[in-house]
Amino acid sequence: MSRHLSGFRTVLSEDEINRALARMAHEVVERNKGASGLVVLGIPSRGVPLAQRLTARISSVEDIAVPVGALDVTMYRDDLRLRPARALEPTDIPDGGVDGKTVVLVDDVLYSGRTIRAALTALDDVGRPRAVRLAVLVDRGHRELPIRADHVGKNLPTSLRESVRVLLNEVDGQDAVLVGATADAHPAPEAHLAAGEEEAR
């Protein structure tokens, strides 16, 4: 079913990703007591299509349109000086902004927590949400900051030597979450951060 990358094994299939997103959509609505006042922001790159899928499910559950956008955190990263400057990804704040809203940040993998720290700082400059929640498809542990997710697709205990790859139809042409022992090709922003440490081993 999934393209076989050498040394990687599939931990979430397409169906399992869909079920996880469906459950997360219900959790978000339950926690928020409805879908009013929600703004869903994906963190590029793979957080953005995930945010769109999550939002589509929330909208169909509650039958109201929930604004969805993208929040690039590159300019707010704490590791900018450790590597050459990178290209920015699009930031797209929905009309109506985030002031007084409940913002749900969406990312594919939660790892060190540094991307989310950067996202919270970035959000400061956009406006003042009433509350910020975090939804991730995979929580692989190894936090370096006091940050946790409110909604998790799958808790995935990993070793620091492993890498987690999230493949999404919109970007990769297929849906799958893979875990492998190789240290290259980290798709998740958090994984990028830790990659420096891993590769330095």
Binding site: D72, M75, Y76, L80, L88, T91, T121, D125, G127
Partner: peptide, 24 residues
């Protein structure tokens, strides 16, 4: 093209923002 694309994002990151400043 990278410079021009980045400039597009700079515009988006500061236009209409309450805080027109980035910590970068």
């Amino acid at each position: 093209t990278l410079i021009l694309d980045t400039a597009d994002e700079m515009a988006r990151l500061t236009e209409g923002r309450a805080v027109k400043k980035l910590p970068t």
